[in-house]
Amino acid sequence: MLPSFPSITFPNHWTLVTGLYPEAHGIVGNEFYDPNLQETFIHKKPIISTQPKWWSGEPIWKTASSQNKLSGVVMWPGSGIPTMKPDYFLDYDRNYSAKMKMDTVLDWLDLPIEERPQMISVYIPQIDQKGHGGGPDGPQMNMVLKNMDDAIGHLLTGLEARNLNSHVHVVIVSDHGMAATHKSRVIYYDDILSEQSLSYLMEREAWPLLNLRPKYDAPLHAVEQIYNELYNYTQQHEAHYRVFLRQDVPNQYHYSNNDRIAPIVVIPDVGYSFQLHKEFNNTIDGDYRPRGIHGYDNQAIEMRAIFMARGPRVERKFGRGAVVKAFQNTEVYEFVAGLLNLNTSPNNCTLCNDFEPL
């Protein structure tokens, strides 16, 4: 499955449950500035990130609840927004293991039928955390993958013990992939931009992209000057990045039609990182951290996500063991809604459940 661009956590988690591209639902990065609100979204600060003003679109749990199907969510990004909470809600707690989360799901399924949620979503961050810490081929990755596999096995065994395995649909997705970093692949953008241009800039946005926005008191020519310096560098060096004015970002990325996207969008090659010299010195500092990064071109192999589904409707439509051609994660909302017999809210699906066999 192809993640949406940029291939980072909060934009893609919200795309998975709304079927909207980030430019449409408004979560265009894990950190970004809204020039209309004159405020910055920071995903790791719930006091900011749970404010409804940031979020557009209707998540699948609200679609279900509005059509008389109870919903439950375990720690999915965006599920804590007061105006969009599901019927059953477990807030983010990093002390919960994947198996404990599956036990929560099974406990909900043990409720009397009139109280039982019909749609449940679960977020498990451990693979992403280990990927950042040790890289995609880090020494602990296989252990974490096994733990996740065991947790899914625990869920499936629990469904079978309750005679639900032939009734419940299970859909497993990831939000993105992961690529290894190295200190030899650091791009120092203070070697590319002039001191004057650097002085015009607000904080960078949508890491690991280098999304750049001039300060309010910067001169009118600041965007053009900064863009030209970045672009001219690509014409004279092996730059390992591409730079676009927001309005010129290629259509395939669906990443231009929102003011929360900075006026200048710089996309590094897979595995490359933008830094200032004061942030990291590759001659005296140790290994570059994080050792794994995502957020690159969403069509890069390293950024690919996973999609697996099982259940009676899946098998009737596609056959057991079917493999389909790669598709955008904007299709997942419509797919899950179809399993639940729900009427969908407007979304960006194009296949809309008509997946092509490989």
Rank of each mutant, 00 (worst) to 15 (best):
R313P: 10
V270K: 06
D91M: 06
G72H: 05
I8W: 00
Q236F: 07
H25M: 04
D150P: 06
V74R: 02
G311I: 02
K278V: 01
S7Y: 13
H294I: 05
G19C: 10
E23W: 07
S184G: 14
P77I: 14
G292R: 06
D93R: 09
Y188S: 01
Q252T: 02
I8S: 02
P112D: 13
A305S: 15
D150N: 09
R313E: 15
D110Q: 10
H132S: 08
N341G: 15
N211V: 02
S256R: 03
N147Q: 15
Q236M: 10
S56Q: 13
S345A: 14
W55N: 04
L201F: 08
L155A: 11
A206T: 11
P117K: 03
V223D: 01
K130R: 15
K325H: 12
N12W: 04
I192P: 00
L164F: 00
Q299P: 02
R289H: 09
R320A: 15
I264M: 06
E23I: 07
D128Q: 09
R246A: 10
T181C: 07
E203Q: 13
Y333A: 02
K85C: 12
G29N: 02
S56Y: 09
H154G: 05
D297G: 08
R260A: 06
N36M: 10
A322H: 03
K85N: 08
G19V: 03
Y33H: 04
V186R: 01
A239L: 01
Y216G: 06
A262F: 12
L20G: 02
S199N: 14
H277S: 07
D259G: 02
H176A: 04
P214E: 06
G131K: 11
Q247C: 03
M178W: 06
Y200H: 08
L145V: 05
S166A: 13
N228L: 10
G271I: 09
G292A: 09
E302Q: 14
E31F: 09
Y92T: 09
K183L: 12
P11V: 03
V249A: 13
Q252K: 07
D191K: 11
Q235Y: 03
Q140M: 09
S7F: 14
A24I: 00
H176G: 02
P290G: 10
E39K: 13
A305Q: 04
L70I: 05
L37F: 12
P357H: 12
Y123P: 01
R246L: 04
T344Y: 12
V105I: 13
V17Q: 08
D259S: 09
T330C: 05
D287K: 07
D354Q: 15
G338N: 03
S174G: 10
L201M: 08
N251H: 05
D217S: 09
N329Q: 15
Q129L: 08
I47G: 07
Y33R: 11
P250F: 14
A180C: 10
Y96L: 15
N251L: 14
L230S: 03
Q252I: 13
D217V: 01
L276Y: 01
Q67S: 05
R289S: 05
P136F: 04
M75Q: 13
K62P: 00
W54D: 14
L230H: 00
P86H: 12
V73A: 13
F244E: 04
Y296E: 00
W207Y: 14
T350M: 06
A309R: 04
A179Q: 10
